[in-house]
Amino acid sequence: MSTSTLTSWLAAIDRPARQTLALAQAPFRSTVGLALAGSGLLVASSLIAEVLVSAPGGALQVPKAQLLLPIFESLALVGPSAVIGAAQVGLRSTTRTWLAAFAVGLLIAGVVTTATLPLMGYLVLVSRAQPYFTPALLLPVLGLAGLASTVGRVLEAIEDPPAGRRASVVFQLALALVFGLRAAVHLGIY
């Protein structure tokens, strides 16, 4: 990974709205690349965390990724209607802007989960009791929080104040709701 890639990632993390608008102008493949990089980090760190935490007898279990899929499912379910709905109510975000915002959001989600990975290692080292749920399940939830908060920040930055705030809240609630429902199904609660 070159230094310029890293610098552009850090710029996207520091100023997501600015980077979103720049990505929307740039060739589409850079948006796809960023989304893939973010998703890759998110998936890899979540799976590594599951392997680490759920390996009691030395035999590595196959990770279940119960909460990883719901992130992408909720994005796939909420995303399209967000794009269309935003156009309907007259927001200025275009389809490209939305896609770029999702890409930046996925990148931040990936970096957040990757940064939390050392804590999982630490927990493996020091855990002396069996928790009710595996702490690895925390990572996808953090990833979703990163995604939702980033897209919300971008919306609030590039839309006019009341509309942007409203759109951000609606988007985040919808994302969280769908994630919760899909997660319940995957965990076998519902």
Binding site: L10, V111, V112, T113, T114, L119, Y122, L142, G146, S149
Partner: peptide, 23 residues
């Protein structure tokens, strides 16, 4: 030292979530 190493990543991640990244 181990505790600091374990906490460093999540602290950095919190910065990302609240839009206050410190390198």
């Amino acid at each position: 030292f181990l505790g600091l190493m374990g906490a460093l990543g999540p602290i950095y991640a919190t910065g990302l979530l609240v839009a206050a990244r410190l390198p």
